[in-house]
């Protein structure tokens, strides 16, 4: 993978096994070019946080990774498969290995917590025995400390609880990669730190690789192994939180000063 022209090299990483390799990806919506020759490698069991201004294409990037949007050009290799070339069946298969935590949780409001958690299980693994489904739902809810909410409806839960349930649904298939779209947005600082901790705990337990989009600098500091700055559609900076925090580049500094 070639290094983008404008990338500010802050720290060199040891070569590791890649979980996600994004090469020369372009994405535009009409005249608006959102991703322009974007390159990124996420290694196994690594937490990479993507920073960037609102509308800079962070959510578009992770939606391209999971195949909800199709990149116009370039390749996105996820666990050995190029997502941009996969058929619908191929995408369904790779999605069992990728979890996606939506910014607004995206829990099905017509279903109970149990049904929300069962949905991906029953869709991906149709031959799963009911006892196994129950056990997996129980385990997922215990992981987020909400085993008592099984029969509740999403509308009965608080913002923090909804985020935990959404995280439980994301983790229920035990994915190898998790994509988080602003996991702490809209939460109070205490709940946000609890979610940070939960993400780290689950990552250690299931050895997942993650891409996290966040504007919450405490969250970035707490959970990142690496931070990537998406600027003008490109990977502008790539390094640890500390190395970027100490950078003299004005485009990087503005995120850490705010």
């Amino acid at each position: 993978m070639s290094t983008p022209e404008k990338t500010v090299s802050v720290k060199k990483e040891e070569p590791k096994v890649a979980a996600i390799t994004i090469s020369h990806v372009y994405k535009r919506f009409g005249p608006n070019v959102v991703l322009k020759d974007f390159n990124l490698v996420v290694n196994k069991e690594e937490n990479v946080v993507i920073l960037g201004k609102s509308g800079s294409g962070k959510s578009v990037l992770i939606k391209c990774i999971i195949g909800l949007l199709k990149a116009d050009k370039g390749s996105i290799n996820v666990l050995g498969d190029d997502v941009t070339k996969l058929s619908d069946d191929g995408l369904a298969k790779i999605r069992t290995k990728i979890g996606f935590l939506f910014q607004g949780n995206a829990l099905y409001d017509s279903m109970t917590v149990r049904e929300n958690l069962e949905f991906p299980l029953r869709r991906h693994w149709t031959d799963l025995a009911p006892s196994k489904v129950n056990a997996m739902v129980k385990e997922a809810l215990e992981n987020v400390g909400l085993a008592h909410t099984t029969e509740m409806m999403p509308e009965e839960l608080s913002g923090g609880m909804l985020k935990r349930i959404a995280l439980a649904r994301t983790m229920i298939l035990k994915p190898e990669i998790i994509l988080y779209d602003e996991p702490t947005t809209g939460l109070d600082p205490v709940t946000a730190r609890e979610i940070d901790q939960l993400i780290l705990t689950l990552q250690k337990k299931y050895h997942t690789s993650s891409i996290i989009i966040s504007h919450d600098m405490n969250c970035v500091k707490n959970i990142s192994d690496r931070v990537v700055l998406l600027f003008e559609g490109k990977c502008y900076a790539d390094g640890t939180y500390q190395s970027l925090e100490n950078s003299a580049d004005k485009n990087i500094k503005q995120f850490f000063e705010s």
Binding site: L68, F102, G104, A106, L107, Y108, D109, F119
Partner: peptide, 18 residues
Amino acid sequence: GSMKVTEQIDAMEVSGTN
């Protein structure tokens, strides 16, 4: 429409459902 704006349709697609 409500499912679309709250990303429930995307969540469904991610869950292996067309």
